[in-house]
Amino acid sequence: MNTARSNPINAALMHGALILYTLIALFPVFVILINSFKSRKKIFREPLALPDAESFSLVGYQTVMKQGDFILYFQNSFIVTVGSLTLILLFGAMAAFALSEYRFRGNMLMGLYLALGIMIPIRIGTVAILEMMVATGLVNTLWALILVYTAQGLPLAVFILSEFMRQVSDDLKNAGRIDGLSEYAIFFKLVLPLVRPAMATVAVFNMIPIWNDLWFPLILAPAEETKTLTLGSQVFIGQFVTDWNAVLSALSMAILPVLVLYVIFSRQLIRGITSGAVK
């Protein structure tokens, strides 16, 4: 059709640029992962070599498993992330349904009020949040984190979900009403299953920032038994700064779950971003 679009030199240049940037993006992760499986001597002598039979060593992982309670940290992160996502999705969808389905006085204002939090970061209120958590005895519990992340995630969730719920056909809902379904049944049985793709988008958007957050675990739940994986690896690495095997292994153990999640959900995530969910 057109020479400029299918010129082989152009194509080669484009692939060259993309490959170069892909290498830049992956190189640090790759270096950390391969060196975590090597003995200390080899880490320093041949940092870029793959581990082989001679240099292979799991001594770093052994230190990590002995010294840090990474299973507990992982479990905490998991509970916090899943708990927050569940609340964000359930409460967010309910509020989105109320805003998109019913006409009532103050509907617009309520929508604007809930949208405020999209642009204003919740961290600004940290001082008062900590005071409140101390007063209610929630400090150093996973509930403190779940509540904060739920509040943080709700505004965008309500915004995205109500956009999608407006597209659910009115005829369907009215047919349900004629059949005698209650408003709750219409929400849970008719509308929720139809907006499942949008719910997945919201979940994936929220999952990464919650899992990776350092600020709130550091301030609200720094106790040993409530440390999340992010905070736990931060503290662990700070203490073992000179033990390179342990540091590299701890980093790898923090990278792996995220990478696995990413491989599972990347299609959902990318589709969510590129479908224009954030306008």
Binding site: F91, A95, A128, M132, A151
Partner: peptide
């Protein structure tokens, strides 16, 4: 039902986000 649908989200958002935000500004 409108109140029931809105309540949980508004409650958590107001107490954990908006109220502390203004409380911090007050402090």
């Amino acid at each position: 039902h409108i109140a029931v649908f809105l309540a949980p989200a508004v409650l958590i958002y107001s107490t954990v986000m908006i109220f502390p935000l203004f409380n911090t500004l007050r402090l």
